Simulated assay, not measured.
Amino acid sequence: MAIYKIVEIGDEILREKAKPVKEVTPNIHKLLDNMADTMYEANGVGLAAPQIGVSKRVIVVDIGEGLIELINPEIVEVSGHTVTDTEGCLSVPNMIGEVSRADKLVVKGLNRKGEEVLYRAKDFLARAFQHEIDHLEGIIFVDKASNLRKVE
């Protein structure tokens, strides 16, 4: 496995719309493995492929309940309330801010076997999915955040 350098704000790839994965190949498996290793090494809870310089619609998330790998993820349903909470981002070191997001949603995508999977997410997992899927659209949390501030 490999630990990648995380791309930081200012790099153009973070502003691009990531390309859909046409086929789940061994290279995609390797990408998923390396993304997970990179996320864990950086003590993150999520990582999108553009954050390691790869313009593909792939995310990994682990909020402490086990690794979720999603290829071509999309939000198919949003419900519940909008909740504002503090977020940070591995691509925006030492900054946090308040971001409003839906507290319940349904996300679909492909797993590493190429099978369609569905996640009904709420609270922190819903927030993590929205944050990572935003990256696939070229959106960084600072675009939505208020009360941005430095942390050391």
Rank of each mutant, 00 (worst) to 15 (best):
V76K: 13
K122L: 02
N147S: 11
T25S: 15
E115A: 12
V151L: 00
G10M: 12
H81L: 09
N147F: 02
I139A: 08
K56W: 00
P93G: 04
E12Q: 15
Y40N: 09
S55V: 06
N27Q: 12
A18I: 15
G53T: 05
G10I: 09
N27K: 13
K5Q: 14
Y119G: 05
K56Y: 01
I13W: 08
E16N: 14
D62A: 02
D62K: 05
G66F: 06
S79A: 11
V83F: 03
H131P: 08
A42Q: 11
A102G: 12
L136G: 07
I75L: 14
I13M: 12
E65C: 00
M39P: 05
R101S: 06
M35V: 06
T84L: 05
E69C: 10
N43F: 08
G97A: 07
E87S: 01
V60N: 11
A128Q: 08
E41F: 12
R15Q: 15
F129T: 02
E16Y: 10
G46D: 04
V58I: 02
I140K: 02
N94L: 02
L118R: 14
E41N: 14
G114Q: 05
K17A: 11
N111V: 10
R112E: 15
H81T: 06
K104D: 08
V7Q: 07
R127A: 08
I3M: 12
I9Q: 10
E41P: 01
A102D: 12
M1I: 14
S146D: 06
L118Y: 01
S91Q: 04
R127S: 04
Q130V: 03
K122R: 13
V92G: 06
V76Y: 12
T82C: 08
I59M: 01
G109Q: 04
C89M: 01
P73A: 10
L90G: 01
Y40Q: 05
L31N: 03
D11H: 09
N27G: 06
R120D: 14
I52T: 04
M35I: 02
V54W: 01
Q51Y: 04
E152P: 04
